[in-house]
Amino acid sequence: MLLFIPKLPLDKGIEAIIDFLTTNISFITKAISRVTEGGIEAFISFLLYFPPWLIIILIALVAFLITRSRGIGIFSLIGLLLIWNLGLWTATVTTISLVLFATFITIMLGIPLGIVAALYEGFYKVIMPILDFMQTMPAFVYLIPAIPFFGLGPVSAAFATVIFAMPPSIRLTALGIRQVPVELIEAADAFGSTRMQKLFKVQLPLATQTMMAGVNQTIMLSLSMVVIAAMIGAGGLGGEVWKAIQRLKTGMGFEAGLGVVIIAIIFDRITQKAAGRKNT
């Protein structure tokens, strides 16, 4: 029976909306894009201004200080030195900068939205299916509308990344707050706390562990998306992989892929430890 119904013009509809938005607001988004791109590039140049060994030692030191694990410190040192040796330093710095930038934006948006979702049942019910949708939609799809708004380049990549990596930070912030035992909420209320006092003195401190797990997931998703986003000119390690694919160079692809793995492990261990350390 479905055969008799003509194909619904869902694609045309979406395109019409995007077209409308592009013609009407893209001058703003393009402007934002230029400024942001300048910022990201300045940050990358800043990191590249120092000799790689200095940055490598600093990162390894930070990893060690946060995790208090000598193993992770040494792994970071050797892994990053290997990346440098393979001639991937510039690409790696680009990737790290993009991930940090995207994660920063994601958290700035995701945590407040997560708090609101935790406190207002109605908002929670609306946003959860949207998050499911955002997470299951194939990541590539976000790249397409990003281009008309932000043009080819790192900002489009960051935009798509933010959308892709946002759900866990919202979800786990809401979860962390909702998980606070009801008797602690009662205790806070019984002493006459205002809503804000309850949030900042009881709910958020007790939710930090879960929220950090969300940050960890956000970073991991950002990293995977930043690699994919090389297709729209994000550059970095993903760009190297992309080049290798186009030229069918397995070895080169493997090297760049290894770089991604090393960065991923360092980010993951640091954020996991930061999450596990609180409230022991």
Partner: peptide
């Protein structure tokens, strides 16, 4: 009500309800 709770009513709970952090 908040004022009343703050000044006049102290509450003790069955499962203690202490703030673990």
């Amino acid at each position: 009500l908040r004022e009343l709770r703050q000044k006049k009513l102290g509450m003790v709970f069955q499962r203690f309800a202490l703030f673990p952090h």
